[in-house]
Every structure is written in structure tokens, then in C-alpha cells.
Design a protein around this nucleic acid. Structure first.
Length: 419
RNA sequence: CAUGAACAGCACGAUACU
């Protein structure tokens, strides 16, 4: 029991190392293990994404003859949801059914969550249907996930339709549901409505959370009111909430959009002083700013800082570096970055190709631009409106209006309307 | 009346023109 308390405590704390150590300690003492211990240690590793270890433990547990409760399956599935591993999730789901266990709403919730995260709403709806056909009715969480799914893909209309359905089902929205609605309005820039929801949720006795405020701050920032954004930060602090890394990122992004790099940097300082560790997004936001003003060196400096601090880089980080090069005409450096990116195992996506296209276009190099277009197609992506606009730009800069006119045709034939 | 697990939902970064 004592070990169980410790292991589950560390699991909750997100410290899978410590949990594992206590688990080993317990085992070396030859004390009896049981399902509770296993579910705690599996939980710890799921939260940390150590799914290899999870599988090991699970097999071990089965071998020792402890029956796997549904809760463990759900926990493991959730671990794979975080990793967006659809195949493993489905395998587990199948296994649950094969074992003759009835999936619960939590099981279905995990699957719905998976598809929402993958932005495959239609699949999420199918799962919901199957759930209902098995006699399980939606609860606040499953509804909230669907509402959020629509918000994420920029379809507030359907989001609100689901919300109404939820109300009609007699379910009262909770903080998370309200946060999702606030987010929906903020995304559209309808700040009046967002604030109205804020007022309403308070009236219903729900205390706004970090997410509530951060959505509002971001909404103001992205829709042209940095001042109100910053005032909201103060309002949030007065209400007793400390800004999180996300909140600081939102603030920096607001300032970066206005090219107030020094102010953005002072937010970074404030963040560190507050004991909040910047993450890769924090630095990418700054890199973007420097890229836009042609400060290639500073963009690189922050890129190195990400690595130095042991944080991961990703395609978006590389994209910011590329942009820094392309915007300042340093196409040779851009090439090198592409190579480095490929070596690091990242594939080009349309954003990357379009950044490159833009780089060549600005120099009026229609030929290199054409090559990128071709590579893009070879890479399995169809050029989009951005690609063609850049290419047109390249043609015009190169003085080849004939080619520009042809490109317009090509676009139309590809089903892309010039805007 | 006193010890452990049991699980799912919300906020931030990238491409052209504007």
C-alpha cells in the first residue's frame, strides 16, 4: 500500500522516473505485486509517453495472471492518443471487444478525442454513433470534444449546433465547455461575444481559468488590439492566475506581429524571471519576428538556443529559419537548411515549399521557382493558391508575362481560382 | 467513520496576395 501511494503519487506528478524507481524497489524486495501497482506504474509511463515500457509492463502483468481491467486499457489507449497513433488505438479497441469487455464512455471518449486531434471530425462522429448504438449517451466531455473539434477546423456554426444539442439533452456546460465557446468567438475575432460568455460563465458560478483568459488575450492580439490584450493579462493576474508558458507565448506573439521585438524580448525575460521555462514555440515566435525583419543572425541565434536548451526542433522551427533566409535573399543558406532539415528526418510540407517559392520569386528567379514547384509535385503536394501567387510573382519579376498568363490558365485548370 | 489504482474534453508558433 505504501509503495502504491508513492507510485501513483509520482504518476500524477508526471514523474515516471521516480515511479519506476519505486516500482523496482518494491519488486526487488520481493513484496507481492497486484493490479493496483501495475495500473499505477502503467499510468505513469502512459503520461510520459513511454509506450514501449507500457507494453512490457502490460505483458508482464498478464503473465503474472492479473486480469487487465478496462481502466488499464483506457489508460493505454489515451497514451497512444497523445502520440496520435491511430493504429494502436484501434488495435486496443478491438482487443477490448475481443476480450468480451463492454467499452465504456471513457473508451469511446478516447477514440473521439483521437479523431478530434487528428481533425477527422467525420470519424469522430462515426465513433459517437457507434457509442450511441451501444446504448451509451453522450456526456459533457464527449459533447465538448465534438464542439471543440468543430472549433478547431474553423466551423463555429456546427460547433454551436452541437452545443445546442447538448443543452437540449439537459447537460449543463462546465468550465471546459465554456472555454471552448470563448475560444470559438475569439478565433473569429468576435470579442464582444467572447466577453459575454465570460460574464455568463461567472454568473453560473464557474471561475475562469488560464485557458479562458489566454484565449481572450490571443483573440485581442490577433484582431488588432494589443493594448486590450495586455490589459486582459493584468486583469488575469489580478484574479490570481499566474501566466503560463502559453500565455507568455501569446503575449510575445502579439508584440512580434507588431514588430516590437524589444518588447517581446522583455516578455521573454519576465517569463524566465517568473520561473516559467520557454518552450520551442516561444523561441519560434521570436524567430519568426526576426525572419520578417531580415535579422537572419538573430533567427539563427534562437534556433541554436532551442537546441542548446535540449528542446526539440520541428518543421515549423526550420520553416522560421528558412523564412529568415528567403526573406533576405540568402538562397544558398536556404538550401543548406533544407539539407539539414532532411538529415534530421523532417519532410517538406506545403508551407516549406511555398516559403522557398516566395524566396526565389522575390529574386525574380522563375527557373528556380519552377524547380521548386516541380519538387513540390514530386513530393506529392499540389501547388495551392499561395504557390501560384508566388510563381506568378516570379514570372512578373522576370518579365515573362506570357508565362504568367499561362500560369493563370494552369491554375484555373487545376481548379484554383485566382483571387 | 480513517490508508493506495482506475481512465477521456479546453488556450500559444509556419507559406503568397491583401
Amino acid at each position: 500500500v505504501t509503495y502504491g501511494v508513492l507510485i501513483s503519487g509520482f504518476a500524477k506528478d508526471g514523474n515516471s522516473e521516480a515511479a519506476e524507481n519505486w516500482f523496482q524497489d518494491l519488486r526487488s524486495k520481493g513484496l507481492p505485486l497486484n493490479q493496483i501497482i501495475y495500473s499505477s506504474i502503467i499510468n505513469a509511463h502512459c503520461k510520459a509517453g513511454n509506450m514501449r515500457r507500457v507494453e512490457e509492463l502490460f505483458l508482464e502483468m498478464e503473465k503474472l495472471g492479473y486480469p487487465a481491467a478496462l481502466g488499464i486499457y483506457n489508460t493505454i489507449m489515451d497514451g497512444y492518443v497523445t502520440l496520435r497513433d491511430e493504429n494502436r488505438c484501434l488495435e486496443i479497441f478491438r482487443k477490448i471487444k475481443d476480450t468480451g469487455i463492454q467499452p465504456t464512455i471513457v473508451t469511446y471518449g478516447c477514440l473521439i478525442h483521437l479523431y478530434i486531434k487528428m481533425k477527422k471530425i467525420s470519424r469522430a462522429l462515426e465513433v459517437a454513433k457507434e457509442m450511441q448504438s451501444n446504448g451509451i449517451v453522450h456526456n459533457k466531455m464527449t459533447y465538448s470534444m465534438l464542439i471543440d473539434g468543430y472549433v478547431q477546423i474553423g466551423d463555429p456554426l456546427n460547433a454551436f449546433l452541437v452545443f445546442e444539442e447538448m443543452m437540449e439533452a439537459g447537460l449543463k456546460p462546465d468550465v471546459v465547455t465554456y472555454n471552448i465557446l470563448v475560444h470559438a468567438y475569439c478565433k473569429q475575432g468576435d470579442m464582444g461575444k467572447a466577453l459575454a460568455i465570460l460574464g455568463h460563465m461567472k454568473k453560473e458560478g464557474h471561475t475562469p481559468t488560464l485557458q479562458t483568459f489566454t484565449s481572450i488575450i490571443d483573440g485581442f492580439a490577433k484582431h488588432g488590439d494589443v493594448r486590450l490584450a495586455m490589459e486582459t493579462v493584468n486583469r488575469m493576474k489580478r484574479s490570481g492566475l499566474r501566466p503560463s508558458a502559453t500565455t507568455y507565448n501569446v503575449m510575445m506573439n502579439a508584440l512580434v506581429q507588431e514588430r516590437q521585438m524589444n518588447k517581446a524580448l522583455s516578455i521573454l525575460d519576465e517569463m524566465i524571471l517568473a520561473g516559467i521555462a520557454p518552450n520551442k514555440r516561444s523561441y519560434t515566435i521570436l524567430m519568426e519576428g526576426y525572419a520578417c525583419i531580415g535579422e537572419v543572425g538573430l533567427a539563427f541565434a534562437f534556433f541554436n538556443r532551442i537546441k542548446d536548451e535540449g528542446l526539440e526542433v520541428d518543421v515549423i522551427t526550420y520553416g522560421a529559419l528558412l523564412k529568415a533566409c528567403c526573406k533576405s535573399g540568402r538562397m544558398q543558406s536556404a538550401r543548406e537548411i533544407l539539407r539539414e532539415m532532411a538529415d534530421a528526418g523532417f519532410e517538406c510540407n506545403p508551407f516549406i515549399y511555398n516559403t522557398l517559392l516566395d524566396g526565389w520569386a522575390q529574386r525574380g528567379d522563375m527557373w528556380q521557382a519552377e524547380e521548386v514547384l516541380q519538387e513540390m509535385k514530386n513530393g506529392g503536394f499540389s501547388p495551392d493558391i499561395c504557390s501560384y501567387t508566388s510563381f506568378l510573382n516570379a514570372c512578373c519579376k522576370a518579365g515573362d508575362m506570357q508565362r504568367a498568363a499561362e500560369t493563370l490558365e494552369v491554375m484555373r485548370n487545376a481548379g484554383i481560382q485566382p483571387n
